[in-house]
Amino acid sequence: MKNYIRNHDTEDVRLSKLEEVSGLSRNYLSVLFRQEFGMLPLEYMMWLRVQRAKQLAVTTSMSVTEIAREVGYADVHAFGKMFKKKTGVSLSQFSSSCYMTEGRLGMDV
């Protein structure tokens, strides 16, 4: 399941698809995933997207809109809300803080 999510993290992965791929019920696969990785499958997908967005923000000159699309969000506003909820700062604030610190602190990729 983890590999499937990692390989499809820019797509709209649903629990029903994970049920199909794993052959497990939705509840059982969620329990197993949380036991093994400490988060639910869709939380893991969001974590991957945040990590990828951080990486792109620091290593490319892509705009926030381009980064949102690259990590699987068609709606830049939905992406911005999710990113801020997960990190406590906007992607622009994150990028600025990385460039202001010589070691580019804040990168958890």
Rank of each mutant, 00 (worst) to 15 (best):
F79M: 10
S61P: 00
L40N: 04
N27Q: 15
V31W: 09
G80C: 05
M1Q: 07
V64R: 06
K84W: 05
E11Y: 11
L18G: 03
G88S: 04
A68V: 00
R14D: 06
V89C: 08
T59D: 02
N27A: 14
L32I: 12
L91N: 02
V71K: 05
M100S: 07
K81S: 05
S25D: 13
G23E: 13
S30Q: 12
S25T: 15
S95L: 14
H77I: 14
E66L: 01
F37W: 12
Y99P: 00
V64G: 01
K17R: 14
W47H: 07
S22K: 11
E11W: 08
S63V: 04
F33H: 09
S90M: 10
N27M: 14
R69D: 01
L56I: 03
S30C: 15
L56A: 08
F79W: 06
G103F: 11
G88H: 08
L24C: 04
G72K: 03
S25P: 00
S22W: 15
G72N: 06
S30R: 14
N7V: 05
E19R: 15
T65F: 05
H8Y: 10
E66M: 05
E102R: 13
L56S: 03
E19M: 11
F79S: 04
H77P: 00
M45S: 02
L29D: 09
C98I: 07
E66W: 01
V89A: 12
E19I: 05
M45K: 15
D75Q: 06
V76I: 02
R6W: 10
R34D: 10
M107I: 15
S63Y: 06
L15W: 12
Q93M: 12
Q93L: 10
M62F: 11
M1C: 07
R34S: 13
W47A: 13
S61T: 12
T59Q: 09
G38R: 06
Y73E: 09
M46I: 06
L40R: 04
L56V: 03
T65S: 12
V58P: 00
M39E: 15
K17E: 15
W47V: 04
G80I: 03
T59S: 05
D9M: 12
H8D: 12
H8A: 10
R26L: 10
L56K: 04
V50W: 01
P41A: 13
P41H: 14
S96D: 13
R69H: 05
M39A: 02
D75T: 01
F94L: 13
T60M: 10
N7I: 02
V109P: 00
K85W: 06
V76F: 01
N27P: 02
E11A: 08
L91S: 02
D75F: 01
I67G: 00
S96P: 00
M62N: 02
S90Q: 11
T10H: 15
V89H: 04
G88F: 09
Y4K: 02
L15G: 07
E36V: 03
L24W: 12
K84R: 13
D75P: 00
I5A: 03
V21W: 04
T60N: 05
S22H: 05
R52S: 04
G38Y: 09
E36I: 00
R14P: 00
